[in-house]
Design a protein around this nucleic acid. Structure first.
Lengths: 156, 156
DNA sequence: CACTAATTATTAGTACACTAACAATTAGTG
DNA sequence: CACTAATTGTTAGTGTACTAATAATTAGTG
């Protein structure tokens, strides 16, 4: 007998709740797999970016991963300590940081090729189901990046 | 000309990447809205659980939110400091913690009733689209909780 | 009833993730 | 060329989020 607005506050109905649980749960599935490679999940995403192109600047990686530079700084430091990459200043632009894969970092890609298949099998999802979920997430991300409706303007 | 297994490592194709970005992005949409209530997003989820039933034990909240008790302990401490709830031992079971809404905590629900609508409008999503996304996330969570295939047994 | 096992919270330690403040460098402009 | 603005990273501070270790209490068993 509660009003619709009150029903909207049920925990089990919150998209944000389902989303954060799904995110943590899926990352949790990766954990034992990535542990064998000595990587955390955020570190794995950085390595994926570098396996596509190296060297890259921190800013470039930050844009690719949609992460704050302040978040990536310590992650890159740990990956450097693990011997997977080097951090030097870009010649000709001393502001930018040149993040470069080491031989060990590049070689780790071999082991990584097995990861997506392992996860898909662990989740019991087909390639198509994964693609559908990916598309749904991409659409949701796009929704967050659209400008807010005018009559719901930001404070200030 | 790369092999399929190598294409699988493209950052833009990773469900885990889309999922973590979507989670962070959506939580980021909540942030300015919840800030007016003095809540972070994890704190908001705890309040949702308590608005459904109070008092509840930490263990009970932990099960509802699929969170480790060790994660909730400091969150509950901050909510107590904010005057929204109390933490006492359950009479008759001194192990359990009785988490109870204060009058201020219960009253905050009024403001919260506007939150889901505000978010839906900000995201430009219909009730149905939200429901579809919610169902997709619920399915994904279920996939992570299914037992692993036998031939991909856990180490040990 | 004593002993062991299970339950429940907390604390310590590590690793994100964010904002704000800062520092260093480079670009743009008169 | 000097001055201002923009770009790029790092550090500090706050708040999760996890595992492991610990502590306190309760339940179960002979």
């Amino acid at each position: 007998m509660s009003t619709p607005a009150e029903d909207d506050l049920l925990l089990e109905r919150q998209l944000c709740f389902a989303l954060t649980v799904a995110s943590r749960s899926v990352v949790g599935i990766y954990k034992p797999v990535l542990e064998r490679m000595g990587l955390t999940h955020p570190q794995y995403l950085v390595m994926l970016a570098l396996w596509e192109r190296s060297p890259r600047s921190l800013k470039d990686i930050s844009d690719a991963l949609l992460h704050e530079p302040a978040t990536l700084s310590p992650i890159l430091r740990r990956l450097e300590e693990a011997g997977l990459l080097t951090r030097e200043r870009v010649p000709g632009n001393e502001r930018a940081l040149a993040v470069t894969l080491t031989d060990a970092g590049a070689a780790l890609r071999e082991q990584a090729t097995a990861v997506p298949g392992t996860i898909m099998e662990r989740l019991g999802l087909s390639r198509e189901e994964v693609a559908d979920l990916h598309a749904a997430m991409t659409g949701l991300i796009a929704a967050t990046q659209r400008p807010a409706p005018v009559h719901a303007a930001q404070p200030g």
